[in-house]
Design a protein around this nucleic acid. Structure first.
Lengths: 135, 135
DNA sequence: AAATTAAGATTACATTTGTAATATTATCTT
DNA sequence: AAGATAATATTACAAATGTAATCTTAATTT
């Protein structure tokens, strides 16, 4: 597991997002979701869907006759994970704290989330102390 | 302040990274830094530098005669901030907790950093409670 | 000063991405 | 069944990006 995922472009990402929000969906449903916000022609959206299918970021099965229903092959979690990893790799050695601060401030977090994050921070504290003691 | 920053492509980002690590640098110095890791011809690297100059992500001044010394016009902090904002905007409404968890795990943080982050989390906790009480 | 070298400037060309239009084909109407 | 409709498939084309090569010109070497 943990395979490579195909490169997904900006425009294609919009398709993925609607499929992540609900799946499966027909091409027409996707088009309906996107036409207002993106100002794309239906044909454009179909092209993007097809490209995603070619690169196996989505797949489909025939539903009730002629139409396809599409669903993502790449999960949002996986996608985000890969994107973040890539960012981290790029900026390896750079202080990311300012960025973390930004994140934490902007993000709405549930109490459970907050506790989990604090716990992770505690774990890091302990790690540090263990290392300190060894020195 | 807080102006738009120009779009910087993957390849161009490599140039920015070497200029962020040390600046100013001549084209040749940049080339030396990059040739081993990226397998690019010097001319390729010069093209990328020029494109960055055109889009005003870097600038230069003439040093000792014919050669230019290049320096970034976009700071690394600003770049990261914009990139992350864009990621956040994309995934507005999505739980970014897994992503944060990833970040926290990978990042080496000093004890002071950790405390600062915990404090931010505490503040968020309080916010939540205040909101709860109001309901 | 003429020839050589080496910066920087300009131009080139393939691939990827954005943005569709046209062609084909399966289904629905009449 | 013939025509109309509406999906999917195929093709198109401009802009952005990756990856250089050639051209021009200023500096260095003979």
């Amino acid at each position: 597991m943990n395979k490579e995922i195909p490169k997904i472009t900006e425009a294609e990402l919009e398709i993925m997002k609607v499929l992540w929000s609900k799946s499966p969906q027909t091409a027409n449903e996707i088009i309906e979701s996107l036409e207002p916000k993106m100002d794309w022609k239906p044909k454009t959206i179909r092209t993007l869907i097809n490209r995603l299918a070619q690169k196996e970021a989505v797949s489909y099965h025939q539903e009730d006759g002629r139409m396809y229903e599409y669903y993502p092959l790449v999960s949002q979690e996986r996608f985000l994970q890969v994107e973040t990893k890539s960012l981290l790799r790029h900026f390896y050695g750079t202080s990311l704290k300012p960025l973390l601060v930004n994140f934490l401030k902007e993000e709405k977090l549930s109490p459970e989330d907050i506790n989990e994050l604090k716990q992770i921070l505690d774990e890091k504290s302990e790690e540090n102390q263990r290392k300190d003691r060894r020195k």
